[in-house]
Design a protein around this nucleic acid. Structure first.
Lengths: 144, 144
DNA sequence: AAATTCTTTGAGACTCATTCTCAACAACAT
DNA sequence: ATGTTGTTGAGAATGAGTCTCAAAGAATTT
């Protein structure tokens, strides 16, 4: 935590930026879990903890962190973004159409094929968006 | 054209819906090209052709057609949807980060692996979103 | 520790895509 | 042709995200 704080302060300083309680709290909040959170969830989590922060700051800070590769931004086709910690490795997502459960997956062969496809089409691949949507077989899922 | 009109009329009738000049025009407009168009583009194309239509109708009709598998809806991460004809086969997209050129691709092995991944994770796969983003090697692209 | 500098924040206005409301309109069956 | 009922248009409403600007507060300097 305290080493984390120093970390963030250092990273920001390189770009002439300052660390603040709000920035630290937002990063800690995302790193605390592997969840995929949207802005409202993050905003209210911080509020509940008594941290003084505005929505504008949450939006600005998340964008800042995405640009500095401190967190990842997800677009799961909901009309809004979700954010996740970068403490886990790269992965893509399967989403249940019934209960919205988000499961992470990683397939090396698919990753390789994406590179091949990009090359074949004359592209230098920078990133990808890959989501599977389906029905999960969970007992607790409303479709069962 | 006229067989097309009869077609759409029949399809809609099955669900107790009616064909209208607006609906026919929107479907024709999308089927006319392989392009990936957003609502404003479609709306203004129709306006330019002198077709009386409102944005609300364009939105409603596109959703109706997506639900009836007459067209496909694309989310290329732009904060708005694009729509394309279903006269082409299934494919995914590579988007150039510099010139926004959209290239279609289709890789059978990736499609198979998506099925495997879904199965491994206890999902019955319904659909997927798969986009690659990179830099294209086009002469006309602003990054060259 | 105080002064200085310059970044950051909060509140609310604003934008943009999309959805909703409802009265007027118009397909289609009979 | 007429009636029933689905459809449209105009604009209000919504929701996510961005912008503005004065006040607040990091970090540096004295």
């Amino acid at each position: 935590m305290s080493s984390n704080k120093n970390n963030l302060t250092k990273i920001l300083k390189i770009s002439g930026l300052r660390n603040t309680p709000q920035r630290q709290a937002i990063l800690d909040e995302l790193n605390r879990t592997r969840d995929h959170r949207d802005v409202e969830e993050i905003y209210f989590s911080l509020k509940k903890k008594g941290i003084k922060v505005s929505r504008a700051t949450v939006y600005r800070t998340l964008e800042l962190f995405v640009n500095h590769y401190l967190i990842r931004r997800l677009d799961l086709g909901e009309g809004k973004y979700r954010y996740e910690s970068r403490e886990s490795d790269h992965h893509d997502h399967i989403v249940c159409l019934d209960c919205n459960k988000i499961t992470e997956f990683m397939n090396n062969r698919i990753e390789e094929l994406q590179e091949e496809v990009a090359q074949e089409n004359g592209f230098f691949l920078k990133r990808h968006v890959h989501q599977l949507f389906g029905h999960c077989l969970n007992e607790t899922c409303p479709n069962k």
